[in-house]
Amino acid sequence: MTSPYPILSILGILIVTLTLAAGLIWLERRLLALWQDRYGPNRVGPFGLLQVLADMIKIFFKEDWIPPFADKAVFVAAPAIIVVTVLMSFAVVPVAPGIIVSDLDVGLLFVLAMSSLGVYSVVLAGWSSDNKYALLGGVRAAAQMLSYEVFMGLSLMGVVLLAGSFNLTAIVEAQRNLWFVAPQFLGFVLFLIAGAAETRRLPFDLPEAESELIAGFHSEYSGMKFGMFFVGEYLGVILISCLITILFFGGWLGPVLPPIVWFLIKVMFFIAFFILMRAALPRPRFDQLMSWGWKLMLPLALANLLITGAVVLAWRS
């Protein structure tokens, strides 16, 4: 089921996601302030909304500096990769019935594939900067992505088993009676954690880690190249929120209100939750992160898959 107006959908999704990503900057700062008993940006325009515009103007006019010691081609490509891969993932996200760019049968696999590619951005940025902090950030990102990718995919397989499809629209439709969060609660928690790690959001921002690595992989970036990493990160937050909504919370399904509104409400809720996590949680040590991933999350994800598989098998037979 592909959109009848592909160009319109593409443009629509592109514009909405990018605007949303920009708006998120304001939203995050306001929410963080709210939870820290502050105001946040409230001076520029109503409620400080135009702060986003001011920030964008600022970042566009900043000097776009490429360090003379950097590997120039890779240095330029790295921020593009992250934006492109995340935006590509949005192609298969069903916002509402009929609002989707390409309703792939292997939609979920495509999303996983794209998010795996996204790690190249960080690793290459870290390497091409030729800066010890950036390199450390890149190395950390590679290790973190590898570790958390594994059980991210595994944690979703329960959903796939229940829905019997990789097609995201089909997965949503399969939740008409019961959101998968109920049968797959463990899978949901695992995916939430893996998703946060995948977007390198706090508390999993070890590749950036201001207090240890200055700004990690993007230490050397400035101007709009830095802006692209920034936008990429917020796009990632939106994407993971969309996926959680689709996979565990019935996507656009809901009573009374139009489907797209339901979808947006659910997505905004998870975005807010990600911001809350940032406001509340400290950053773990790197060895803690790795041992969590391999020693706790992976076994749990495998167990979840085995039990779900067993239950589905028993149910079917």
Binding site: L34, W35, Q36, D37, R38, Y39, L276, A279, A280
Partner: peptide
């Protein structure tokens, strides 16, 4: 942290 939503702002 969520409950801080209902605290008075100190700014």
């Amino acid at each position: 942290v969520l409950l801080h939503m209902f605290h008075k702002r100190i700014t």
